[in-house]
Design a protein around this nucleic acid. Structure first.
Length: 479
RNA sequence: UCCCCCAUAGCUCAGUUGGUUAGAGCACCUGACUGUUAAUCAGGGUGUCCCUGGUUCGAGUCCAGGUGAGGGAGCCA
């Protein structure tokens, strides 16, 4: 039996005969005594193991190096040094796995995130990354907890899809063909009727359309799973493989949808503040250190925990696209021609510089933009009475941009069919989707949340490749 | 995909107008030290200066191409 370091550090008193297993972070010491900082991933904090050198084989002590796996049997005693309440007085030390000092790349010092990305198989062993992974786990748990409490059904939508009309971006092809020798039809095209599924298939870019089917039966559903986009996106906020949360609720209109999204985000943030205190404290401190190096203008006005608290406790700003255009048109950067894309008239798609202005300069809090022009949004969004806008909403977060994208869905069969036709989408492909509007249609709404973008916000990390264990990006599928 | 930067020791980085034997801190190794907190002190340099080609008497330094990485934009979550 081993005791987790988290539990030992929280111990109410001394304990005899405990066993810990974990990895060495640092070893230091003098002629008579060695101090080993050990971590087992249960907490960001290390426990100090103290070994009286006289009681141990010199060869064993030599093998205790940064990265080595140890089993230590001993007593939890009150620390005789400053800096920690308890420490483990070692009686027995077994080196379970050595870590060669001249090969092990992690050192007891700060490494750059770029370097750690190159050794993604070892980076969970760092404070930085283990904190992110624990927060990621707690956030996933909080998401399920939230929806469960609200009576949502977690629906497993397919990863492999036969539909190419999801309309959310480039898709990865799935085939069993020998790509150099695929069967061809008479006119020279690849003959997918002979492929595994009997048709061309792809990895999903969204579970929304299927989630809508579920919502029209179960009332409230959500998806939470991997999602794939074959876009050649090279940014700090895009991945080719990422996790997405997509709630879909029957009878909800756009206002209900915005209420749900805001309440949901605040719940997850509060949950992390409550459960990941140690990890947040570490990240908060680390980020504050990095801020010090930056010029004053680029520094964030709040530190991580404050920022999370602020967002959890204040209402998001809700602004229609039309009002947002007004604000932007009259803004200083627009008048002084500081925007790369100047806002002149209604109908323009907002660039990230505009979104950033609204969120970071004008409102200084998360902003929900709604009622966008129909021609810049997807076919399934419900048309407003004005005939030119749709019931879409995006939630923009400071430093991240679009966290959530959602809409009230077009539930009117004729309107939807017409939209599909004018956008040149194959209606045969979507006949099953159209059936929901044919049989017992009802207003419904939903949204998609980029899980990793949420983790970016929760951890204060700057690059999405640092909040997923093994990032998949164009040109990179290592590990 | 476009734009901008960058690539020197295991890591982080310095390297002057092109100049002879390429440096620092940390890591690592050796030793010292009565309890340390990324321990401290003394000693030790471990290198395909990303690759290919060019300019030059001479290239880590200049030029061209390539590769890799980072930031920004677009696409979006």
């Amino acid at each position: 039996m081993r005791t987790k370091i988290k539990d030992l550090l929280a111990s109410e008193g001394t304990q005899n005969g405990i066993t810990i297993k974990g990895w060495v972070r640092t070893k230091r010491g003098s002629k008579n005594v060695s101090f080993i900082a050990m971590n087992d991933g249960s907490t960001i904090n290390n426990i100090q193991v103290v070994a009286d050198n006289a009681n141990f084989d010199e060869e064993v002590l030599k093998r205790i190096t940064t990265g080595a796996a140890l089993r230590v049997v001993g007593n939890l005693i009150e620390s005789q040094g400053a800096g920690q309440n308890y420490e483990v007085e070692a009686k027995e030390i077994l080196v379970m796995g050595d870590a060669s000092t001249d090969e092990y790349p992690l050192q007891p010092k700060r490494h750059s995130l770029e370097f750690l990305r190159e050794i993604a198989h070892l980076r969970p062993r760092t404070n930085y990354f283990s904190a992110v992974l624990r927060i990621r786990n707690a956030a996933a748990y909080a998401i399920h907890e939230y929806f469960n409490q609200k009576g949502f059904v977690w629906m497993h939508t397919p990863i492999i899809t036969g539909s190419d009309a999801e309309g959310a971006g480039e898709m990865f092809k799935v085939t069993n063909f020998d790509i150099n020798n695929a069967p061809k039809t008479e006119d020279g095209e690849v003959d997918f009727s002979q492929d595994f599924f009997g048709k061309a298939t792809n990895l999903t870019v969204s579970g929304q359309l299927e989630a809508e089917l579920g919502a029209m039966a179960l009332g409230e559903v959500y998806t939470f799973g991997p999602t794939f986009r074959a876009e050649n996106s090279n940014t700090t906020r895009h991945l080719a493989e990422f996790w997405m949360v997509e709630p879909e609720v029957a009878f909800n209109d756009l206002d209900d949808n915005m209420d749900l999204a805001e309440d949901f985000l605040k719940y997850v943030i509060k949950s992390i503040l409550e459960k990941c205190g140690d990890d947040l404290t570490f990240l908060s401190k680390r980020l504050a250190d990095e801020e010090k190096v930056k010029p004053a203008a680029e520094r964030s006005p709040m530190e991580l925990k404050e920022k999370l608290q602020f967002v959890a406790e204040n209402d998001f700003e809700r602004v229609s696209y039309t009002d947002a255009i007004q604000i932007l048109r009259n803004s200083k950067p627009n008048k002084k021609k500081k925007f790369q894309y100047l806002i002149n008239e209604w109908g323009a798609d907002l660039q990230s510089e505009h979104e950033r202005y609204l969120v970071e300069k004008h409102f200084k809090k998360p902003v929900i933009l709604f009622d966008y022009p129909a021609n810049i949004k997807a076919f399934y969004m419900r048309e407003n009475e004005d005939g030119k806008t749709v019931r879409a909403m995006d939630i923009l977060f400071p430093g991240i941009g679009e966290m959530v994208g959602g809409s009230q869905r077009e539930e009117r069969y004729d309107v939807l069919l017409n939209k599909i036709k004018t956008m040149g989408i194959d209606e045969e492909e979507l006949s099953w989707y159209l059936d929901t509007r044919k049989f017992g249609t009802a207003p419904h709404s939903g949204f998609g949340l980029g899980f990793e973008r949420l983790i970016l916000f929760l951890t204060g990390m700057g690059n999405i490749r640092d909040v997923i264990p093994f990032p998949r990006t164009p040109g990179n599928a290592n590990f």
